[in-house]
Every structure is written in structure tokens, then in C-alpha cells.
Amino acid sequence: MIPQEQSSTAVAAGPASTAVRLLEVRSVSVMFGTFMALDDVSVNLDGGRALGLVGPNGSGKTTLINVVTGLVAAKRGKVLFDREDVSGRAPHRLAHLGINRTFQIPKPFTGLTVRQNVEVAARYGKGRRSVEEILALTRLDRVGSRSSEELTAAEQKKLDLARALSTAPRLLCVDELGAGLSVSELDEVALMLRDVSERWGIALLVVEHLMGFLERVTEDVVVLNAGQVIFEGSLVDALRQPNVIQVFLGG
């Protein structure tokens, strides 16, 4: 596959000496029937760093995460993780490699308790992390024996996060974690993300509408519109770009 010239590349690069290229999305396109969900998108992310993914509804943010985590197959292009081509690999394989995610609408294992939810991921995800530690970290320890469908929306989001963390990911894709949370919950979750990212050196790929939430987690963003990358750089710069502003306000 010859990289096309107009392909845009976004890099969240840290100091060149320490950072290692962890994720490389190369010219990925995704089609749903005749609808082009992603059109030649490239994104790079270094180990331990965080990158925001913004754009209006339907711009392809979640699709990109789905491609990275193996839930959706790309029509063209490649995904490299740790310099290894992982395109088309099954999601559980990617989870074992260290790629994980949360879902926009949390999908807890209903019928299982909160602790069992995390246990399953800890056991099958090969994370070798202590279930109790994860529960404490995500402040779910008090509701550990409750059935997961009884949780509040905010708790379910945390459970999604807890489950992902228990597989010891090196790359965590976070899909609109902030949506529907109260201000205090937003603060709590943002802090939690920063904390685990720093503590365990997890790279974050964060899809978010709420800029306030995003700026607490990362400075670097990629802006998508209609399946294409229209901006890459810092969040502050992004908000000064006329085409970005137009997409958000006029679109």
C-alpha cells in the first residue's frame, strides 16, 4: 500500500529521547456499505502519552477506536502496535497485547457482580493485576458485591474503566467517558485517568466532546471531520483554527 500524499499525520510525541512509538495508525479507511466512515486516517501515539480525539458526531472517532481495538476491520491501511502489524487481529489478542478500551455506553456483564466483572478481565486479560487494587483505585470497592446492572451510570463507567485497567493495558482507548457525568464525577474520573496513566505508564487515546474534561487529561488533539483528519496539534491551537471552529459551531 503506497502512502498517499494528502494523508495527514498527527503525532503526540514527547521528548524524542524517552518516547517510543507505541501506536501507529497508517492510512486507515473504513466503509459501511457505501458510507465512508474513515477516509485515509493516520494517527500516531507514543508510549505513556495521551492524545485527544475530537470532532462532531459521526466524524469517525468511535470507528477509529473500534479499528484500533479490533472490533471493526479496516478496508485499507494498517494498525501497528509496538511496531508490529496488528491489523485484523481478534480483539482478545489485542487485549493480551495491551490494547484496551472503555465503551461510550458502558457494557457491564449483567448478572455478574462488580467484583466478578473485574475478575473475568483480570483472569482472561493476563493483566496479573490485583482485583482488589483495581476496585480500590476506581472506588468501586464498596459496591464490589453488587450486581453490575444495579450500578448508577457513573459507577458503570468506572466499572468499564476498572475492567479495562485490570488487563494491564499499555494503550487505553477511552470513548466519551465524561458524557452524562456530574461536574464532581467528571473531576474524579479525569484525575483517575491521569493517575493511572502516570502510575502505570499507560498511553491514552481519548474521545471526548467535553473540552473541559479533555484538557485535564491531555494537551494534544486530533480533530476529525467526516472521516478525515482536519487538524492535529495542541488543544489550545485547535480552538483557534477557523476550520475547526466552523466544524464545531457551524456543522
Binding site: T69, G70, L71, A90, P91, H92, A95, H96, N100, R101, F103, K107, P108, F109, V120, A121, Y124, G125, K126, D160, R163, A164, T167
Partner: peptide, 8 residues
């Protein structure tokens, strides 16, 4: 899909 992401 959650199960798959849990490594199953």
C-alpha cells in the same frame, strides 16, 4: 465485545 476486550 466487552468479553472480547476482557481478553476472552
Amino acid at each position: 465485545s466487552s468479553a472480547a476486550m476482557s481478553g476472552i
